[in-house]
């Protein structure tokens, strides 16, 4: 892991761009799908991509240079100063599970709408338009 730390300091800008840039790109791509796609399943796919981007952003904010996972294994009981921030990880942990449940609920609504209207295209589902 030492080699990685040296490389991290040397190429810090590149890694920052790779991690933050990817997360922001994922959010933007997901938002594009949610706002502009017409098929309901595509919209839910966009939501799950936004989820992935936000989770990556959270974990990236909690990362600390030369840090290890915040677990006090035998032999590392006093290594708190070498550990990454545990709070965003704890948030993301539950957010992933909740995200799955919400996706399942959304998809059940999609199935129900398809069975009622025989289409999953939001342009053709007109009874909710005003």
């Amino acid at each position: 892991m030492n080699e990685f730390n040296e490389l991290f300091i040397k190429y810090k800008d590149l890694i920052t761009l790779a991690v933050y840039g990817t997360a922001i790109m994922l959010i933007i791509i997901g938002l594009y799908a949610v706002l502009l796609k017409k098929h309901l399943v595509k919209i839910v796919i966009g939501l799950s991509i936004i989820d992935a981007g936000v989770h990556l952003l959270f974990v990236a904010v909690g990362y600390i240079q030369t840090g290890t996972a915040p677990i006090f294994s035998p032999g590392y009981e006093n290594a708190a100063d070498k550990m990454v921030d545990p709070v965003p990880q704890a948030l993301v942990l539950t957010a992933i599970v909740i995200g799955f449940a919400v996706t399942a609920l959304a998809l059940s609504l999609v199935i129900r709408l398809y069975k009622h209207h025989h289409t999953a295209n939001i342009e053709q589902i007109k009874s909710l338009k005003w």
Partner: peptide, 29 residues
């Protein structure tokens, strides 16, 4: 990024469960 807990969760839920519920939805729509 040193988050093994999150990695396990994402592996179990994101890869297996989310994919399968999307596939079930596509089968029904």
């Amino acid at each position: 990024l040193q988050a093994p807990d999150v990695a396990i969760t994402e592996a179990a839920i994101g890869i297996a469960l989310t994919t399968i519920i999307f596939i079930i939805t596509i089968r029904n729509t």
